Simulated assay, not measured.
Amino acid sequence: MKKKSLKGEFARTVAVTMLAVALASGLAIFGCSQLQKSILPDSNEAWLTQRITAADGTVSEATTRVEIGGQAQSLGRLVQDGAEGDPDQTASYTIDRIDSSFSMLTDKAKAAYRASQVAMVGLPLLFAILGIALAGQWFYRKKLEPPIRALADATAHVRRQDLDFRVRCASADELGQLCAAFESMRQALVDNNRLLWDML
């Protein structure tokens, strides 16, 4: 049987647990962020400001709300009266994105948005706690409890001066080696008792 180490088994258990927690946390955070985007999507609207400066320094300005990525629309051109086609005019444009506002949401949507924010922090924490608890439980049940129980039963037999038993432990780690050593000791005691009886 290949020799194993409790330390190595524990390290593997921790690594698998951390991977599972990280994966579950990542999915939870991604899901919450998608929910937040559906509740409060990024605005696809912007303010388009058109500014015309005439040769005499007068400025005409107009602002229009436009949809980014929407249908093309003609905005026209601002000109001073009687200055149509004046080459001395300069035009400038500015675009300011309109941000979505949390204050514009309904109470129900606000509650859902806040819940998703709490979930983004709370779910990874919950997954970490559950992961540690489940990994610890699994490690104890699978790796520690069977050999400890076998050794406890064996010591109870020896205390009653009953050597008619076997210490069985399938583990190949340090606790398995301890069980094997205990079984060797038990067998040595049986052999010694047999020799003593033969001498009488």
Rank of each mutant, 00 (worst) to 15 (best):
F10V: 08
V16A: 07
T17F: 13
L19H: 06
V21K: 01
A24S: 02
A24C: 04
S25C: 11
L27Y: 10
S33Q: 15
Q34M: 03
L35P: 07
L40R: 04
L40A: 03
S43A: 09
S43G: 14
N44K: 10
N44Q: 13
N44L: 05
E45N: 09
A46W: 02
A46F: 14
I52V: 13
A72K: 07
R77L: 02
R77K: 07
L78R: 08
Q80P: 05
D86F: 15
Q89W: 15
Y93L: 06
I95L: 15
I95N: 11
D96S: 03
I98M: 12
M104T: 15
K108D: 13
A112S: 03
A115Q: 11
S116W: 03
L123F: 06
P124R: 06
I129W: 01
L130F: 03
L130I: 00
L130H: 02
G131A: 06
G131K: 05
L134K: 02
L134W: 01
Q137L: 11
W138M: 06
Y140P: 00
K142D: 00
K143D: 09
L144N: 00
P146R: 00
P147R: 05
L151E: 04
D153Q: 08
H157S: 12
H157D: 14
V158K: 12
Q161K: 11
R168N: 04
S171P: 12
A172P: 13
E174A: 14
E174Q: 01
Q177L: 11
L178I: 15
C179S: 04
C179G: 08
A180F: 03
E183R: 13
M185R: 11
L189Y: 11
D191H: 10
D191P: 04
N192C: 11
N192M: 15
M199F: 13
L200Y: 13
